[in-house]
Computed example of a mutant assay.
Amino acid sequence: MDSTAWAMVGLVLFLALLAYMKVPGFVARTLDDRAQRIRNELDEARKLREEAQQLLAEYQRKRKEAEQEAEAIVAAANREAENIVVEARQKTEEFVERRNAMAEQKIAQAERDAVHQVRTSAVDIAVAAAERILADKVDAKMSAELFRKSMGEVKTGLN
């Protein structure tokens, strides 16, 4: 027998020993267990991916809702600001109108007071001038007659 034959015998004995110790079954079981673990991990990864996609869809929906809500809030704030501006402008205009009206009333009152004062002054000056003229031209007799006549006019005017 040559060395090739002995190598063959050694190989057969080694394979027989492996078979006797049930190494191929153990290797097969180990490989099957590893394949099952990999399958389980793939299933778990698939489930996790589905959950992640569901969470992503939910968060995207919530983000869209939040954006819509934010847009609604901004729009409401803009409308409210516009209303406040319009109301403030209207109140300011009303205030200015009231102030103008009050100023016009004060001016009109001042004009009336000035006209009244001028008339009063004119009457006082006219009375003083009339008194001076009458004092120069009228004597005691004429004065008594004018006084009676004036009293008669006053009585007639009062009745």
Rank of each mutant, 00 (worst) to 15 (best):
A70G: 07
K47G: 04
E87M: 02
A75L: 06
E97L: 11
E80W: 00
E50K: 00
V123K: 15
A75T: 08
Q105W: 03
E94I: 02
E69I: 09
R99G: 02
L56E: 15
N78P: 04
E82Q: 13
I84N: 10
E67F: 04
K62A: 08
E80P: 01
Q60H: 13
A103H: 01
A88Q: 03
A76M: 00
A76C: 02
R98W: 04
N78G: 10
N78I: 13
D43F: 01
E71G: 08
E65W: 13
L55V: 08
E80F: 00
A76Y: 04
R98F: 02
Q53C: 02
R46D: 06
R89P: 06
A77L: 06
D113A: 14
R79Y: 05
R46H: 05
Y59R: 13
R99E: 07
Y59V: 11
Q54N: 08
K64R: 12
L56K: 15
R112T: 04
A110M: 10
R46P: 06
V118D: 06
Q90V: 09
T92M: 13
E44N: 02
A101C: 03
V115P: 03
A101P: 00
A57C: 01
K106E: 15
E82L: 07
E67L: 06
H116E: 14
D113G: 06
E94N: 04
V85E: 10
A114W: 08
E93V: 02
R63A: 14
Y59W: 07
Q90S: 14
V123F: 13
Q105G: 12
E97T: 13
S121G: 07
E71P: 06
L48A: 09
K106L: 15
H116V: 05
L48P: 05
S121A: 13
Q60E: 13
M102T: 10
D124Y: 14
A108F: 04
V118H: 07
A52W: 05
Q109P: 05
A122T: 15
E71H: 14
V86K: 12
E44P: 02
R112C: 00
K62F: 09
R119E: 15
Q90M: 07
L42S: 10
Q60S: 14
L56N: 08
A76E: 10
T92W: 07
A76S: 12
M102S: 11
I107G: 00
E67H: 03
L42I: 12
Q109D: 02
A110H: 03
D43Q: 01
E71W: 11
A110Y: 01
A77Y: 01
E58L: 01
F95A: 12
N83T: 09
M102P: 00
I84A: 09
Q90H: 07
E82R: 09
V74N: 12
R89G: 05
E82G: 06
K47I: 09
V85T: 10
Q90I: 07
A114G: 05
T92G: 15
E93N: 04
Y59P: 03
R98G: 07
D113H: 09
V96T: 11
A45E: 05
V96H: 05
A52R: 02
K62E: 15
A70I: 10
A110E: 15
R98I: 03
R99Q: 14
Q90L: 14
T120W: 08
Y59G: 11
E58G: 03
V96E: 04
T120K: 09
A103W: 00
F95Y: 10
R61S: 06
A101S: 10
A88M: 03
S121V: 07
R119M: 14
A70V: 13
L56Q: 11
A103T: 09
R61H: 09
R46E: 04
R98Q: 14
H116C: 01
